[in-house]
Design a protein around this nucleic acid. Structure first.
Lengths: 249, 249
DNA sequence: GAACGTCGTTCGACATTAACGAACAAAATG
DNA sequence: CATTTTGTTCGTTAATGTCGAACGACGTTC
């Protein structure tokens, strides 16, 4: 692991959809490094277009190169191509939002969203991430990780997002076991109050789970009267997408 | 400029929408560096999620972190928010595709596309870049760069994309001057045979040109009978978007 | 309007450490 | 089964990234 490279990447990781601008001093505090060290790293990132300086504030934003590369992220492109038509179909049949997410570092990162109505905006925009232990897609992805990875996740703090978020390791471990046997996961107001989700795993030709698809709506609806149909359709859509990706079920 | 960081970023820059996977050996040849050096850099990039290893091929792809950061590229988010409604309006009025692009390193990078019909797919997907000297948006962006930057661009080879691409420095310099005085640029089959575009500059509160918007269609249509209306509407849309961004014209 | 604080930037000395090539193992290829 | 190419490891060396202090440029405040 190369020190300076790791630090440069850590600088980039400070940015998010919420954190748009950071100055040299901000970064030197965040990384706990001398300003001169950060300066050198930032200037290198700027020269390659990974950071761009805001003329008025003097602070740095993410550069265009980051955007270009982000749009070249082939995994998302391929998953989107495979999932979009079936996700659209699922969404319009139920009149609810559909999301597709992948796993990374304890988070479910959303790479596709299809919203049926603007009034129920669950995921602000593609690219954001939610904790794996509270969301339905997160639980699906978590449940199919290697055992060692699951243990690592369970070892960390299961922080609550709502009153219903599962914060007990034993309970979550049992829930993940249920996800594997049932073939789908639920989120009963564990991430957002009033919102419920049902999610199922998407597999590729290797048989491994590469993503998860979910249907979201009011918890009382989706986990109530329409639950049998919703869970069936989500699992079915996930299966169809998996087959598009080359999975031989 | 820090050597190792620069090299790591260069590795990332090897990837594009066309180049999805690269192995250690591929990269060591591309960068003309020993394999062991590349190996260290790649492992660092992988540890931070900027690269991900494909289990079957053993080669490396862009990692999810790149996607997350790309979706956090605030410049594009803000421009998209400001431009989308007006671009949509422009597109549906003319029944043609509309694009918005920004400038970086001699290229026009597309950050928004609104297609009216699927049969006329000019820009494959957002995030791709086209040469600045052949496209209408490119000429607009080029024309409003600092003089030193323009000279630098003109000093390089103006490679042709079609028979009509401007490859002469003097001619292009004159064309850029016309773009500044007229307030818009055209692309008369200079990028793609049969395709014509009209583009105008988008400015922010500082008055500087931050992006360009274009209307594309069959060259004989858009640069023929509908040219007066098309150029007027594109310039008008660009002006409205500029005002949304805080420009006081 | 002057003094202060804060910002990004430059510089040089020091010691860390990134870079390299060779040798290794592992897998694909014929 | 031989051969080539892959990714990986290791140890040495000199290159170079790191750091703190000092600088100049803004913006703010009293």
């Amino acid at each position: 692991m190369i020190n300076s490279v790791d630090r440069a990447l850590t600088i980039l990781c400070q940015y998010s959809q919420r954190v748009k601008e950071l100055g040299i001093t901000d970064l030197s505090q965040l990384l706990d490094l001398p300003k001169s060290t950060v300066h050198g790293l930032v200037k290198t990132l700027e020269a390659r277009g990974f950071l761009a300086r805001n003329a008025e504030s003097g602070k740095y934003r993410l550069g265009l190169k980051v955007y270009e590369l982000g749009m070249a992220y082939s995994t998302a492109i391929e998953l989107q191509a495979a999932a979009r038509p079936l996700a659209q179909e699922l969404s319009s049949k139920h009149g609810k939002s559909v999301h597709v997410a992948v796993y990374a570092g304890g988070m479910a990162v959303f790479i596709l969203k299809i919203e049926h109505r603007e009034d129920l905006m669950v995921v602000p925009r593609v690219g954001v991430s939610f904790p794996a232990h509270s969301t339905a897609v997160g639980k699906v992805l978590l449940a199919h990780l290697p055992a060692a990875e699951i243990d690592k996740y369970l070892a960390e703090d299961l922080y609550p997002l709502t009153r219903r978020t599962i914060t007990d390791k034993k309970v979550l471990a049992g829930e993940l076991e249920r996800v594997r046997t049932r073939g789908f996961a639920t989120d009963n107001e564990e991430t957002l109050n009033g919102i419920g989700c049902v999610a199922a795993p998407i597999r590729d030709q290797s048989g491994g789970v590469v993503a998860a698809i979910s249907l979201s709506g009011l918890a009382e609806e989706i986990l109530g009267a329409s639950f049998p149909e919703a869970s069936r359709d989500v699992v079915e859509a996930a299966g169809k997408i998996s087959r598009v990706l080359g999975f031989m079920g």
